[in-house]
Write a protein that binds this DNA or RNA. Structure first.
Lengths: 127, 127
DNA sequence: ATGATATATACTAATAATAGTATATACTGT
DNA sequence: ACAGTATATACTATTATTAGTATATATCAT
């Protein structure tokens, strides 16, 4: 994959946030939507463009679609996320907040609502 | 500066190449033009957009305009150039070739033609 | 089969980015 | 003042990206 394609992808803050979330583990669309507070259409279109680009893959679990980063993760993505998580800019702080929000959400849907896609809830110790 | 602005900038291979060249030292417009083989208008417009963004600064030396990276160089730029110079993709290889071409050109204009902007030719041992 | 939930796609409108041509400016040497 | 070189800008045409609304598909529970 060419570098410019990757940069074009992460030049959109929303897409960068998606990659940031997924680097921490797979997530289903509706939960990403909830974390990022973005309309469904936009979410879906961005995910599909990233899938097409070869950064993400998806599979279905019931009515949920679970997205994850392809393995191995594109090095340029990893390197930049790593850099940004330490850096100081509005967008960088957002990435941290998103990860926190993700933790809380997974806990909620898993332990409290008991309604979590298997692959997502596996990330916490209860199941 | 927000990360997305920087990514939008380097998402254009041409602009990335400019940053790559300038990280090795200041250069005047016409020499960058020669190295990148790009029309004057395009060169000028890209430089001015990067200057406006706050990544570059310029000063005049006779009829030449010498561009350089602002100091300190934006960390995200440095980190990415560093990564890409080691990486393997068409654009990454191009960056290496550009640096070689830059060396040769500076040598030519300095030693052979004896017609080099002071700040540029300072980079080689002869003057 | 029907309704509910989650997700994707088609289509359109709106906006932004790029490229090209022509022209302008700044400086130098004569 | 004039010609030549280097660079920048204005304007226009073209193309790409994004956003929004409506609609379609897939799965599940009843």
């Amino acid at each position: 994959m060419e570098a410019s394609e990757i940069y074009k992808c992460i030049a959109d803050p929303q897409r960068l946030r998606i990659l940031n979330l997924l680097e921490a583990g797979p997530l289903c669309v509706c939960h990403m939507q909830e974390i990022l507070e973005v309309p469904q259409v936009k979410m879906s279109k961005q995910l599909s463009s990233m899938k097409q680009l070869g950064l993400l893959k998806a599979h279905r679990e019931g009515t949920w679609m679970i997205y994850k980063l392809v393995d191995p993760v594109e090095g340029l993505i990893t390197a930049n996320l790593c850099y940004l998580r330490e850096a100081a800019c509005a967008e960088c702080n957002q990435l941290q907040r998103d990860l926190t929000k993700r933790e809380k959400l997974i806990l909620k849907v898993t332990k409290i609502e008991n309604d979590c896609p298997q692959e997502v809830c596996q990330q916490i110790t209860c199941c």
